[in-house]
Design a protein around this nucleic acid. Structure first.
Lengths: 108, 108
DNA sequence: CGTGTAAGGAATTCTGACACG
DNA sequence: CGTGTAAGGAATTCTGACACG
């Protein structure tokens, strides 16, 4: 029972130049969204940023919202809210899993 | 009806340094396997190599065979044979698809 | 606030070659 | 044959700052 599935989608292996190509954003923009805590790349030992495909998708969503006039701060609040909802769901599933493990199938 | 599905797995977006980390191979080895036509990375406009997750898996298979004493030339022959088998299967499916499109479900 | 840019430096990658075997 | 390495150069990335607004 591991912690997180490590699929291709979430492996941080893409450098910023490729992200620029894939998203059409400038490196300045990409780094700025990190500064505003919207995105969290890993780093190589040398300090170069590494992104995942998920990060790229997220960046494009962010870019869309910015175009719509949403500020980075608001986007961040949204993301925090979404994360909380997710955690709640995950917690619920986990509790269900524990009950299940102890008492067997309880549903129905 | 497009030509090839472009999933994350086959997108060539990973630079050689990351590939080195992920495979444990040296850059020398990775480049050499390309020289021997076992692997075909894309290039950035500047000339840097870009690999996919599939490439990484392939590299690890290659490394295993090399360790077992298989020569690059033999590995290449194997790969060509496998590709031919694949193409044959794909061709068969395509023909079936065309028949299907013209005459409807023919099986059974 | 979000983004462009010039600046200087450091990390990354490239190729061709010599070496060993 | 497969791989290590030193060499020199070019492409890539990094940070902090100034600018505009």
């Amino acid at each position: 029972m591991a912690a997180a599935e490590s699929s291709y989608k979430d492996k941080k292996v893409i450098t910023i130049g490729i992200v620029r190509e894939l998203t059409g954003l400038s490196e300045r923009q990409i780094r700025y969204y990190e500064e505003r805590k919207l995105i969290f790349p890993d780093r190589t030992p040398g300090g170069s940023r590494k992104y995942s495909f998920s990060d790229i998708e997220l960046l494009m969503e962010i870019a869309n919202k910015i175009e719509d006039g949403v500020q980075t701060y608001e986007i961040r609040q949204e993301m925090i809210r979404e994360k909380r909802a997710m955690d709640k769901k995950t917690h619920h599933k986990m509790i269900q899993g524990q009950l299940n493990a102890q008492f067997g199938i309880q549903k129905r």
